[in-house]
Design a binder for these strands. Sequence first.
DNA 1: TTCATAACTAAGCGGTCGTTTAGAAATTAA
DNA 2: TTAATTTCTAAACGACCGCTTAGTTATGAA
Lengths: 188, 188
Amino acid sequence: MARKKEYIEEEVIEKAMHLFWRNGYSDTSVRMLEKEMGINQFSIYSSFGSKQGLFLECLKCYKAKASQMFIKLKNATNGVEAIKDFFYDSLRISEELGNHNGCFVTNTYNEFAEKEDEIIKGQMLAFMDQIKALFIEKLKMNASHKDEETIVKQANYLLLAKHGLAAASRVNTEKEINDFIEMTFKGL
Amino acid sequence: MARKKEYIEEEVIEKAMHLFWRNGYSDTSVRMLEKEMGINQFSIYSSFGSKQGLFLECLKCYKAKASQMFIKLKNATNGVEAIKDFFYDSLRISEELGNHNGCFVTNTYNEFAEKEDEIIKGQMLAFMDQIKALFIEKLKMNASHKDEETIVKQANYLLLAKHGLAAASRVNTEKEINDFIEMTFKGL
DNA sequence: TTCATAACTAAGCGGTCGTTTAGAAATTAA
DNA sequence: TTAATTTCTAAACGACCGCTTAGTTATGAA
């Protein structure tokens, strides 16, 4: 009854994600996206509504890519060690996606911190809360002697350390990154 | 022989710095700067040459504001404890400047990580190297038993932790921030 | 084969970007 | 007071921004 789309949405979203990941939101124009995605501006707007709408789909895509990592952490039974593995996994996912610009979520979190886009900021906070909750869950495993306050403290510490790790992965050497992770978990 | 400037450069640079600090480089337009600084676009360009030129002056200004912090760390004799004080001082300087958007240098570092502006990127790396060298100097003080490699490891760890701290100071509570610093220095 | 439907191309919308220019206003040595 | 010099205001430059529209092309049920 009507013409077919000449592109697969999942595919072009992934291409857009890489461009956003590399340049950030503000410094990625719809013209750049058009070229990278290989489709016309009209198609972008008819499929995703707006630049922000496309970006939200990219965040969803990233979340899906990262979900295996989350599931692995969720199912792990070895507490703190599982969180450390999660740190290493988060580095690996960037490499696998052929991207060397840190963590997409952390970058987005930083870029939007002072902007007025409450939708994207909400997504970021939800993402962070999710990770923090998982950290708390794992920390409780090998910590029968620790009180709740200590555990929350440690979870926060790990969350912020992961922020430092995300920044590090953009510039530092593999050795420096690994050393940082080892140092982070030494005291736990 | 000629007309006088109706503004003091140091004053308008400080105003510009606050705006850049709040919004980042890309999301701060020359029109916004014009309003914030209280001078015309022509004056901005005749005093600073370009938006980038003005931004570099803002970085200089920030550096000057932070120099007291650096001098204090440089002159301290209590090693690791001095670095911890430096962490707390770095939070205080943001508060004193009435700014609640983390560390200007860290934000700039993040924003320019994947851009092609080698001048500003160079400034950032120099800044980071300077801090790292100071950390190494202080770590050596109470560490006659530590080898060089361990010290460099610890300095890197602290540099990246400071990155996490900068992100934290944009969102987290004062208690969470203090807890993070204490956790960071626990293992040293 | 017809024809309603949806996706395509490409031009263009008003607005903002960083930067420049033309000309009026102020300064001060001569 | 004149005249050279510099800063001021305000308008405008071409380029790009996110987004829309007009018109063509492909699809497939009737």
